[in-house]
């Protein structure tokens, strides 16, 4: 027997989680932009969006994060390490692609060094994914071997009920179990009819793509120059990507004191690889776009055994010149072999 969370009990759940010390974050639409933000009640949530414009990544890897405060004195340097808050958080209404992004980035942030900033937030967060009931033209999760009801990265998976009255619950982790314990009296026992999953057509053959990328001859292919010709070199695809994780360290302050910050950076930017000498090994947009694709579907795979793409489609959806991973990987799939 599974359990059901009724939509009309959601406000009570939020209140119960909040009084248990959790902040509740969900998709919200504020100032013409959708993202994950704190909510007090269910009417604050924008649960009907296909996907928020900003990803859930922002809440684990903020675009700017203070690391150290420092002061240089005459005889000593005082520094204070700034740590992220340990606030317990529930993320309600995460899409499977976004939750997958967290799981994909975990090994990266825990590889040779455990990134405390990432894991402190990860360890204090419970991810409640809601399976998709709709998809748009840019969704491509099935092409990267995920699905509209992928449980990857989730502690709880909710499936919307056909009549829209609530969600059927699937508990996936101890953390998820503990979260539902708090609201157990608000849940119903039962099996509902769940909403059919949207059809997300496979848009490219990822195996074929990976094979082509792994061929050393492909690296200098004319293909990269042709496909990246219209790329204007902004960072929107990387910053809106649920798995892109590159950052830069910046010191802000004067000669005597300041704050060291970790700021998002993007492989789309020329500065990203600019050497102090002025030499830039990736001095054209095509080499930068190639890097992005190689990183996601070759290097990351080689290092962590997984591709660094969740199929959310934001790169194309929000690209000012209608580029993106889908088009590139489609074109690679269709290359004559």
């Amino acid at each position: 027997m599974t359990r059901i969370l009724l939509r009309n009990k959601l406000d009570d759940c939020i209140a119960a989680w909040r009084s248990a010390g959790f902040s509740v974050l969900a998709p919200v639409k504020r100032h013409e932009m959708s993202s994950f933000g704190e909510v007090q009640k269910s009417s604050d949530m924008a649960l009907d969006l296909v996907l928020t414009e900003r990803t859930i990544k922002d809440q684990f890897f903020p675009q700017t994060e203070p690391l150290i405060k420092y002061k240089i004195g005459k005889h000593q340097i005082d520094s204070e390490t700034m740590t992220p808050p340990e606030q317990k958080r529930v993320f309600f209404g995460v899409r499977p692609c976004d939750a997958s992004g967290l799981a994909i980035d975990d090994p990266l942030f825990g590889w040779d060094y455990k990134d405390d900033y990432w894991f402190r937030r990860r360890d204090n967060s419970v991810i409640v994914t809601i399976a998709c009931a709709q998809a748009d033209d840019f969704c491509m999760c099935t092409s990267v071997k995920l699905s509209p009801d992928s449980a990857k990265g989730a502690d709880v998976l909710l499936r919307p009920l056909l009549e829209g009255s609530g969600w059927q619950i699937e508990v996936l982790s101890e953390r998820g179990k503990a979260l539902l314990e708090i609201v157990s009296s608000l849940l119903l026992e039962g099996n509902g009819h769940t909403f059919p999953l949207p059809q997300v057509a496979e848009k490219f053959d990822v195996e074929k793509v990976m094979e082509w990328l792994a061929d050393p001859a492909s690296f200098e292919s004319q293909f990269w120059k042709d496909i990246a010709l219209r790329c204007v070199g902004c960072g929107s695809c990387t910053f809106l990507c649920p798995t892109c994780h590159c950052f830069d360290i910046q010191d802000e302050g004067d000669t005597y004191q300041g704050i060291r910050r970790k700021n998002w950076d993007s492989c789309s930017f020329a500065n990203f690889t600019m050497h102090t000498s002025g030499h830039n090994p990736r001095n054209t947009q095509s080499t930068r776009w190639r890097q992005r694709i190689m990183h996601k579907f070759n290097y990351y795979q080689g290092k962590f055994g997984v591709n660094s793409c969740t199929g959310c489609g934001r790169c194309t959806r929000q690209c000012p010149v209608d580029m993106g991973i889908t088009e590139t990987l489609q074109a690679i799939t269709n290359l004559p072999r």
Partner: peptide, 27 residues
């Protein structure tokens, strides 16, 4: 409030025909 949404992707600059500096001041 509006600028707090800015992710510094510089898409505004990159698509702008008038933003032609080979090295923008922010870079």
């Amino acid at each position: 409030e509006e600028f707090s949404k800015c992710i510094k992707c510089y898409a505004c600059r990159q698509v702008c025909p008038m933003c032609y500096c080979r090295r923008c001041i922010v870079d």
